[in-house]
Amino acid sequence: MHERLNEPVAILTGVDKSYQMDAVTVPVLKNIDLLVRPGHFTVLLGPSGSGKTTLLNLVGCIDKPDRGEVVVAGCPINKLSDDELADFRSANIGFIFQSFNLIPVLTTFENVEYPLVLAGMAPERRKRRVTKLLAAVGLSDRANNLPGQLSGGQRQRVAIARALARKPKLVIADEPTANLDSQTGAAILNLMRRMQERYRISFIFSSHDRSVISAADDLITLRDGVIQSIQRKKAPVEDLDSVHSDFIDTQAGA
């Protein structure tokens, strides 16, 4: 149990990723080595096109690298089939998207409940869990509203509750505040931070907004598909950094 707590939530080793645009192959990530610490609030910072989203996609197991290895929650994802990956995501990873990506025909309650339905949880347990989560994000009174009846900030709070529904090991948030005004964005950031601390879940999110830096435990700066720097603002949970100190130093100097 002790070991699991210290286990990195994601390890990327020598990862390359490129996309094909018409006849041109565009390299997006180049030889990425990264360790995401458990129970930390990790921020990927970088300008548009730096590879933040692609890196999140790999860590979130919705894409696979062209080269290198991605291990998430101790599982090498390269070897998993599509269905195994789906089950793995369902059990281990929560997603928060820039455009909220709620299912428009489901109510707030049902959106949060959906991952639990996929997990086959009993209706009574589902109800208790969703009610608790909606209370945590302050949307108990909006349980029966459709996403179209909610404000941007409220929708993102629903998305946060949905991401946390299955108590994942890791929550991926791709520019979660980009579509919100600064005040709402700050509130959402604050909420995510509180949720991370409350549920002891690793959060990794991308942003090109430097104002989020203060919220981060670990700050990873990307530029042109390579990690420019890794700054760890807080002491590690255990002595994880010393275990991987060489790895981190190398990246930081890149």
Partner: peptide
């Protein structure tokens, strides 16, 4: 399409 991507992200299988 985006909704399909979302459903798949949260763990819905292809068969779903």
């Amino acid at each position: 399409t985006v909704e399909i991507g979302t459903l798949r992200s949260v763990g819905l299988r292809q068969a779903g």
